[in-house]
Simulated scan of single mutants.
Amino acid sequence: MYITITPQKLGGTYSQSSADFVGYLEKENQGLEQENLEHFFNQYGDEISAEEVVKDIDGNGAKLKKTEPKFYSITVSPSKYELNRLQNSSEDLKKYTRELMKDYVASFNREINGRPITIDDIKYYAKIEHQRTFKGTDFQIKENQPYATKILQLKNDIRKIESGTLEGNIKRKEKEMAKLEREAPHQQNGKRIVQGMQKDGNQSHIHIIVSRKDASNTFSLSPGSKHKASEVEMHGNKVKRGFDRDNFFQSAEKAFDKTFGYQRNFAETYKARKDFIKNPKIYFASLMKLPTNEKALAFKIMGKAGIPMMPSIPVTQAQLAMKVFNRLRRGAEVAIKSSSIGI
C-alpha cells in the first residue's frame, strides 16, 4: 500500500479553482459508455458529477490566502497482492476509501467546538482509476534509459544518412536498434518499456480530493502540518494541533487488512519501509527472523518494487554489511519516500 498526500500545488500562488485537477481525474472516462463511467463519490453519496465536485471544493476556501492550498490530494495505490484480494475493484475500493477517511480524520489532533473532529467535519470526493502509465521516475524507465539514448542516437543517424549529411549503412543501424530493443532489461508484451506506456495487469487505485477547510468552511485542517500531535498555548488557551502521519499510514494498512481479511507481509508494512530508510540494521535483522516462506515472499515483494537485491540471502547478522545497506537504500529511497509525507 502506497499513499501520498500532496498539496494542491507546490510553491508560489495557488489556482482559485480545482477544475484542472478534477478534469485530470476525468481522463479515463473519455470515450466510455455511460454504464462504464467511474463517478466521484464521498462518504455518503455515489455518482457525483465533476461539476458538483468543483463547485463544492471551490466554494469551501473561505479566508485562505493565495499562498495557501485550497485542497489536498491523497492517492492510494494498493499493491498487486492487495488488489488480488479484492472481489470487485471499484466497489471494494469505494468501501475501503470510506474506512480510510475515518482514519484520516482520527489522525488530526484537533477539536471543533470542544469535540474531536469526525468524518462529517471534512469535505472530500474520491474517484477510482484503473489505468497507470510508466513515468520517468519508475525504475523500469530509468534502467532502460541507456538503451533509449542509444536508440535515439541511431534514429538521428538514420535521418542524417537519408538526408545526405552523414555517411553510413541504414540497414546495419536498424539491426543495431532492433538488438538494443531486445536487450533492454525491462520488457512488456515483448516490447521495451517506455515512458507513457500503459501498465499491464490490475492497476486500480484511488484519488481523493479533500478540502483544506472543514465542512463548515470555518476551520483549517492541514494534513501537511509540520507539527505532530501536540498542544500549544495561544492567547492563554491550550490549543491542539498537528496531523499524525505515522498513525494515518499504519491505520490505513490495518483498515485494509481488517476489511478484506488480508495477511500483510513484513515487507509491505509502513513500519518496515520506514525502518528501511532510517534503521536498515533493524530492518534486515527483522527480515532474517521471519519464517522461511514469509522471508521468501518479502524478498519477492522487494524485487517487484525495484529494490536492488543482494546476491544471496545472508545467513548471519554479521553479513549485513553497511555498504549493502547503503546500496539498497540508494536504490529504493526515492520510491519509499514518495509513499508518504515526511518519512
Rank of each mutant, 00 (worst) to 15 (best):
L93E: 09
D56W: 01
Q145T: 13
F219Q: 15
A178T: 12
I277W: 04
A335D: 11
G11L: 03
F21M: 14
N202A: 00
R182F: 02
P78Y: 12
K199P: 00
L83H: 04
F325R: 06
P311K: 03
E143A: 13
K94P: 11
N169H: 05
V315M: 08
G242Y: 02
I206N: 06
V22N: 06
K65V: 07
A178Q: 14
G31N: 04
E294K: 06
S107I: 01
G114N: 09
A272C: 09
E33L: 08
F249A: 01
R115T: 08
G31K: 00
G59E: 14
E28R: 02
V22W: 07
D121Y: 04
D257I: 02
N326S: 13
F219H: 14
G190S: 01
E33Q: 12
K258H: 06
G61P: 06
P146M: 03
T165K: 09
K95N: 11
P78K: 05
G331L: 06
G114H: 03
I122C: 08
A148K: 11
E111M: 04
A305K: 15
F219K: 14
I301T: 06
N42F: 02
S90Q: 09
A321S: 10
K304P: 00
I158T: 06
I57H: 06
S107C: 03
K65D: 10
M177R: 15
G303C: 03
I119K: 11
L25G: 00
Q145P: 02
R273I: 08
G23Q: 09
F266V: 09
M1G: 03
F243D: 01
K123E: 12
E162D: 15
K127E: 02
E51L: 13
R329W: 04
T4K: 08
